[in-house]
Simulated assay, not measured.
Amino acid sequence: MQESTVQTDGLTSPEVVFLGTGTSVGVPSLGCDCEVCTSTDPRNQRTRCSILFRLPNGNLLVDTPPDMRTQLLREKIPLIHAVLFTHEHVDHLYGLDDLRLFPFRLGHGMPLYCEPQVEARIRRVYDYAFSDRKPTHPGSTPQLDIVSIGHEPFEVLGTRVVPIPLKHGPYFDVLGFRVGNFAYCTDTNDVPEASLERLMGVETLVIDALRYAPHPTHFCVDEALEVIAKVKPKQAYLTHICHDLDHAKAQAKLPEGVYLAYDGLRVPLPG
Rank of each mutant, 00 (worst) to 15 (best):
A252S: 15
K167R: 15
T21R: 03
T159P: 02
H92L: 15
S24D: 07
T186V: 13
I51Q: 08
L175N: 11
P255W: 07
E197S: 08
Q71K: 05
L19F: 03
L61C: 01
G169M: 12
F130E: 13
P170K: 13
V125C: 06
P163V: 04
V267Y: 04
E75G: 01
D91Q: 07
R105W: 09
H168V: 00
I80K: 04
K167Y: 12
I122C: 06
K253C: 07
A183C: 02
V27R: 08
N44C: 10
R133C: 02
D98H: 07
E15M: 11
I241T: 15
L205F: 05
Q2C: 02
L30E: 12
R46Q: 01
G58V: 02
D208K: 02
R160K: 15
D244F: 11
D67M: 05
L84C: 14
V221L: 09
D41T: 02
N57K: 15
P233A: 14
T5S: 08
Q235F: 06
R124K: 09
I228R: 06
L260T: 03
Q2V: 06
F18P: 00
H215M: 03
P56R: 10
V179P: 02
E155M: 06
L157R: 02
I122R: 02
G201Q: 11
V62I: 08
P116V: 10
A129Q: 08
L157N: 02
L205G: 02
S29I: 11
A236L: 13
P116T: 05
D132Y: 08
D67A: 06
R198I: 10
A252L: 14
T136K: 11
T47S: 15
V6M: 09
L101S: 05
S13P: 00
S4V: 01
V147S: 08
D208N: 13
R266W: 12
E203Y: 01
P56S: 12
D263G: 01
L245N: 07
R105D: 07
V83S: 05
E152C: 00
S195Q: 03
K253A: 14
T186L: 13
C185V: 01
V221D: 05
P214H: 14
G20C: 11
L93E: 04
D173R: 11
P216N: 15
D173K: 14
Q251H: 07
R100T: 12
V6P: 03
C37Y: 05
L166I: 11
L166G: 07
K134A: 13
F154S: 04
R124C: 05
R211P: 00
S148F: 05
K167P: 00
D97Q: 06
T40M: 10
G95I: 13
A224T: 08
I207S: 10
S39V: 09
R121D: 01
L11C: 00
T86C: 15
Q2P: 04
